[in-house]
Design a protein around this nucleic acid. Sequence first.
DNA 1: ACCGTTGTAACCATTATAGTTACTATTAAA
DNA 2: TTTAATAGTAACTATAATGGTTACAACGGT
Lengths: 138, 138
Amino acid sequence: MKQISTRFSIAVHTLSLIAIIPNDCTGDFIAGSVNTNPVVIRRIMGMLKKAGLVDVRPGVGGASLLKAPNEITLLDVYRAVNVTEENQLFRIHEDSNINCLVGRNIERVLQEELRDAQSVMETRLAQTTLDQLISKFK
Amino acid sequence: MKQISTRFSIAVHTLSLIAIIPNDCTGDFIAGSVNTNPVVIRRIMGMLKKAGLVDVRPGVGGASLLKAPNEITLLDVYRAVNVTEENQLFRIHEDSNINCLVGRNIERVLQEELRDAQSVMETRLAQTTLDQLISKFK
DNA sequence: ACCGTTGTAACCATTATAGTTACTATTAAA
DNA sequence: TTTAATAGTAACTATAATGGTTACAACGGT
């Protein structure tokens, strides 16, 4: 099965670092903590920036949070890095045969159920803040 | 973002057909309703069979449910077609730098949260049966 | 002006997906 | 016993997302 990209977990990692070390969090430094290529970090930082979560200083380097850690939820991060216009976790096959009872109903009926399932997952993500996460580090 | 495969929705479609038309549900017939290649259906049927949800009759053709429609949940189907040993919806980056406070904690802490999020989604899937789904067709 | 940094473009290898062709095995019916 | 329809599967393909990489321009404090 294709899993949800590590962009998400790397983004959470990145924001945690910025929260804990407000200054000196350059892309290279974060890459060193995540253990990946700096460009991967810069790409993700760009998404976080676009989502209004961080401010990145070009030239001088470093980043800072634009919201307090207790105001940033995992859902915010999830949304920031999952680049799709519509947030559709499940993909449903299209072009079913409308001459068939199942074919002409399955998309609509399944759509409702899966949207619900996705929704409860996102609600759960929204219940955890960056703050809570960091407080569990030891 | 990479979405969850249409195998899932096609599998639900397939089971709905078998439930409604207990006889004569050959792979070609189902493929005609789903509007895809018969081999795609046969592959998915193989997974449903392996999961103990259906009985497929080789030679003569056709399939039948091994459980009542009100005993088959969306979670059962989801599990049947998402071929991975561990059910990990979210992928977390590995090899973080353990010399960093965030690096050595992020995996464990995030793991807990994401497992929870996945869990509530699956619980929601488990609340819908094939029976309920079919009753919404019109 | 210099140097470290950000922002991107471009490229690549890997992987999952979904469709396709082709073939064998199975089973009922002629 | 032969035939026809079907299941089961292997092999191949095209497409797309991912994540890593190199390269380079733009930026900004010292």
